[in-house]
Design a protein around this nucleic acid. Structure first.
Lengths: 296, 296
DNA sequence: GGAAACAATAGAAGATGCCTATGCCCCGTT
DNA sequence: AACGGGGCATAGGCATCTTCTATTGTTTCC
């Protein structure tokens, strides 16, 4: 049994003759005969009663006919569904992001994209960089936003943003009143810091190591998960901190100071499975990132 | 797209690999690759994501997969339905019969058949011989029971019964008291007759013509559609009549008399479309008629 | 570095689909 | 009664498709 045979059967029923079906389907009458024969032989029943002057369904044919209609209908719907799928950019893009790019970078990226593709929605899961990479590897997300390039060759990678770390201090100039923060203030002022595991903290540690310092040299008064909590604590006068400039939209009620002896910049990357087959929505988003966001 | 490709797709999903599907379907792995390739090319989307160590559906594949399942399921059900159809003798046999065979012969025929094939039911339409033949020709009935052989070559024909016409008279021997009815009583006694169009009447007319008589020579006191009415009228003493012996099950409250100068016998026939394709139920009934009922 | 697992590719043999040409049958016409 | 036309079946040939074997390429695991 094949689809062509079912189409032939349907056309015969509609036209009432083999000859009519042949011209309808741009086939010859012997082809129709052969296909019907073959189908009847396979099914073990006669489907058509070849009377002179008219060809009608047998009882078995009447039994089989609705199945033929349904099967062809289903096939056509399946094709339509796939055609629609590849022609329309819609659906969900699952993004796994570490906290800084997820919270501060992604929202700005989604805006212009969403305007062009309003039918695409995003699901964002914020987690550590390692978990982001794992989510990409395990197909739990299509796009990952992280602050470091994953080592593995299987991942594609786009640089989608650059950020500088800045020092922030409480609004009253009790601490760090010079418009910049030097290494001295950094080690002597009360310091608020993210907890280990965050990329922000890792970057800071790395930069400190570059000038011969470590976290142990800081006067840490608060260690917290949340970057927002860091900023709020600084605003409340608890101490100073070093945060991604990206996370400071307005003045946030803190004084923003340059880091005098330390230039800490980092890049953010969109990572994705290099060989994975993506939906049109994901492809559109990656293309957007590559063509209109990516640096270099 | 063909059924084989859908089966291959389903098997790949179930086994998680091309190789697994190949051994499952008794094909080789290159065949699987080629078929998947061909299907993907036709649909214009990739259905499988060939990752090392695992082959999984793409989003498009997940969209298409339920259709594939449904189509295969539907095809299997269609085959099952036809297999069941041809293996089981059940359903309806539509019989068109003229009145005598329909009323008196058919019930005896159906009995033994129904015992063997309890799932077969009968729909009987009683009408004139001409209408019976028309019903067979127009596929409104599969089997016709008539008292004369239809001329056309397209009809098959089985002799399924033989009948003699007998005279009947009222129980009181006022009329026809001799145990037989001669031509004299036939023309002189009050006579009850079926209306024109019935085969019983046609046979009678033909027999009378054979001895140089016609209906006009009879003293007709009642002309009726119904053979039962004829018999009831005779029982009531209205007159005598000539009826098929077949229609007299018991004594019916009338005296059954031989026809002295007239031997009227006739045969009943089952007719059917010679080239029509019948259901197993009809085939079984025709076979039964041919092998266990038919004369000669 | 090598073996194992899995998919892709190449080339050949067989099956299938479709064609043209022709035959058969029934029916209506002359 | 012979003829012609409509409709399906049959026969033979060609192109395509399907499937095979053999091999290559890639990734992963030991």
């Amino acid at each position: 049994m094949n689809f062509r045979q079912l189409e032939i059967m349907i056309s015969i029923v509609r036209h009432g003759s083999f000859t009519g079906a042949a011209s309808d389907l741009y086939l010859t009458q012997p082809t129709i005969s052969a296909q019907v024969d073959s189908l009847e032989k396979e099914l073990g029943v006669l489907l058509f009663d070849r009377q002179p002057r008219r060809t009608v369904l047998t009882e078995a044919g009447r039994l089989f006919y609705p199945y033929a209609l349904d099967i062809i209908e289903l096939r056509n719907r399946a094709c339509e569904r796939l055609k629609h799928y590849q022609e329309t950019v819609e659906g969900t893009v699952r993004v796994a992001a570490s906290s800084t790019p997820g919270n501060y970078l992604l929202p700005r990226l989604i805006g212009p994209f969403a305007q062009r593709f309003p039918a695409v929605s995003f699901q964002v899961a914020t987690s550590s960089t390692a978990q982001v990479v794992e989510a990409i590897a395990d197909y739990r997300a299509e796009v990952g936003l992280v602050g470091s390039v994953p080592a593995h060759e299987q991942f594609g990678c786009l640089t989608i943003g650059r950020d500088r770390m800045v020092a922030i201090a409480p609004p009253n100039p009790e601490l760090a009143d010079s418009g910049q923060v030097g290494l001295r203030q950094l080690t002597e002022s009360p310091f608020i810091i993210r907890r280990p595991g965050s990329a922000t903290r890792a970057v800071l540690e790395q930069a400190l190591a570059g000038v011969g310092l470590s976290i142990g040299d800081l006067r840490v008064v608060l260690e917290t998960d949340s970057l927002e909590a860091v900023k709020n604590s600084v605003r409340a006068g608890l101490g100073i901190s070093v945060v991604p400039e990206l996370s400071l939209r307005g003045n946030e009620g803190v004084r923003r100071l340059a880091l005098a002896d330390l230039e800490i910049t980092r890049e953010f990357y969109a990572v994705f499975h290099r060989r994975r087959v993506f939906s049109p929505a994901v492809n559109a988003f990656l293309k957007y990132l590559e063509q209109e966001v990516a640096l270099r």
